[in-house]
Design a protein around this nucleic acid. Structure first.
Length: 442
RNA sequence: GCGGCCGUAGUGUAGCCCGGUUAACACGUCGCCCUGUCACGGCGAAGAUCGAGGGUUCAAAUCCCUUCGGCCGCGCCA
């Protein structure tokens, strides 16, 4: 017999049905007991009535998070007992039989209690069961689904990039070392090289996968392991082709969330973003002029934006352009990795961009160097030895089209969509300097 | 790495600035009562040597030092 989900119980009114799930709340009135039962689809009130003497004994030890199977009649509630606040508030399950499928020990805290974030992290297998956490990660799953949906429609091929790599990908960011049969391997800090290589194979590729950063940061926007949503496409004119695709993708994701996650957004008090057809774009130098004029800080000689600058610029983009997203382009070449393409019309500056979303950088992308000799020269200019990158360089040695792409932080994106303060709230099992599941100090 | 803040029952907090008899409140837990609640309710109980170590003092959760742990901001980045 197929399992009946709680959300479908309205079609069983007047009939007997069996549901299974976790006990959310127990309300014991002595001779009548109410259990709120939760499954993946919703929750319903089960009533254990006084005339079922044996049942009361079975139910007596049952506490929150016990897993039970309940059989009984699905009844329409008497009018006075309807709870309009709940989707199943007009019905209840009048229980005839109870089967305990799994017991639960006493909970360390009641599940609705507001916790310190550290306590939340200590008890993730339990705290992820809360409605809030389930809403966040349902939205995240929809973001990935929409991302995949968009690029499949655009005829990109989905690939899997390795996580164990030999040499560090880009220089700069610290990478984790891994013993590898007497050698030292590294955990990938980005799929950059592999997605570029695969442009030589499929022209257009995308991927989702985890990447690793060995940086000792302690902020609300950094993780030591995060999920990167990447795309790379060949035969572009310049970085603006990538930006256009990315803009359409953001609109697709927002549309998909509106269609499929409106309930979660409402529950979390999140607003859908303002995303105009053309996402506004400023060169870094223009953005710095805005900062100086509007916000009074002279950062015109900085090579990059600070977090405060990003928040200001997002504020400006919303007021000025009615957009929650803003592209910043043309960072100085010395701040960008060796595969970055310089803009011939703006020497010294890159054909690259960051995407700011509600005050935070969520994407970095741009056009790449695709000529072998130029790439070798760029490596040398950055003090890198081209021999160490000979594997990667084969792609360019044997013919590559002009191409570009981007990498996007899934947790940052999720957090910005939902207005969460800390990206760790948008990470199922965050890896941070002092914690891999449990605190490392313990 | 640098700067700011925090550590009190299982959980979340108050008390700390202005040291002083049994460290308070809420939730949870346990016991008794309750046939309509929906974060049920009522009565009662247990549970904390106040992160750890040292110092000042007649007296320290409270003041000082050290140490451990955590959070936030910055740097770096997505």
């Amino acid at each position: 017999m197929p399992r009946i989900y709680i959300k479908d119980l309205h079609s069983h009114i007047g009939n007997e049905a069996t549901v299974s799930g976790w006990v959310d709340v127990r309300r014991d009135h002595g001779k009548i007991i109410f259990l709120d039962i939760r499954d993946r689809s919703g929750s319903i009130q089960a009533v254990i009535a006084p005339d079922e003497g044996m049942l009361l004994e079975t139910v007596a030890p049952i506490r929150p998070e016990w897993v039970v199977e309940l059989t009984g009649e699905v009844k329409k509630r008497p009018e006075k007992m309807v709870n309009e606040a709940l989707p199943t508030g007009d019905i209840e399950l009048s229980v005839r039989a109870v089967r305990v499928l799994g017991e639960a020990k006493e909970l360390p805290f009641s599940k609705d209690e507001s916790l310190n974030f550290d306590t939340y992290l200590d008890y993730l297998p339990l705290t992820l069961r809360t409605k809030r956490a389930r809403a966040i990660f349902t939205v995240q799953a929809e973001i990935i689904r929409a991302f995949r949906e968009f690029y499949e429609r655009e005829e990109f091929v989905e690939i899997q990039a390795p996580k164990l790599i030999g040499e560090d990908a880009e220089g700069g960011a610290s990478v984790f070392e891994v013993p590898y049969f007497g050698h030292t391997a590294h955990l990938a800090q980005s799929p950059q090289f592999y997605k570029q290589i695969m442009v030589g194979v499929f022209e257009k590729v995308f991927m989702t996968g985890n990447v690793f950063r060995a940086e000792k940061h302690a902020t609300t926007r950094h993780l030591n392991e995060y999920t990167s949503l990447d795309a790379e496409m060949g035969f572009i004119e310049d970085h603006r082709d990538v930006m256009k695709t990315l803009g359409r993708m953001m609109r697709h994701i927002a549309g998909a969330l509106r269609a499929r996650a409106a309930e979660e957004f409402a529950f979390l008090g999140a607003e859908f973003p303002l995303l105009p057809d053309d996402i506004p774009s400023l060169k870094l130098r223009e953005a710095q002029r805005v900062i100086k004029e509007k916000f009074g800080e002279d950062a015109t000689h900085e090579p990059d934006l600070s977090p405060q600058h990003e928040r200001w610029l997002s504020e400006y983009a919303r007021e000025e352009f009615g957009s929650d997203c803003l592209f910043i382009t043309h960072f100085p070449m010395e701040k960008r990795p060796m595969y970055t393409r310089e803009d011939p019309d703006d020497p010294g500056y890159a054909r690259g961009f960051d995407l700011l979303f509600r005050g935070l950088e969520v994407v970095t992308g741009g056009q790449r160097v695709h000529e072998y000799d130029a790439l070798v020269a760029a490596m040398r200019a950055k003090g890198l030895d081209p021999d160490r990158f000979s594997f990667y360089l084969q792609a360019f040695k044997y013919g590559m089209p002009p191409h570009g792409g981007f990498g996007m932080g899934l947790e940052r994106l999720t957090a910005r969509f939902l207005g969460l303060e800390n990206v760790k709230e948008a990470t199922l099992f965050p890896r941070e300097i002092n914690r891999i599941d449990a605190r490392l100090s313990e």
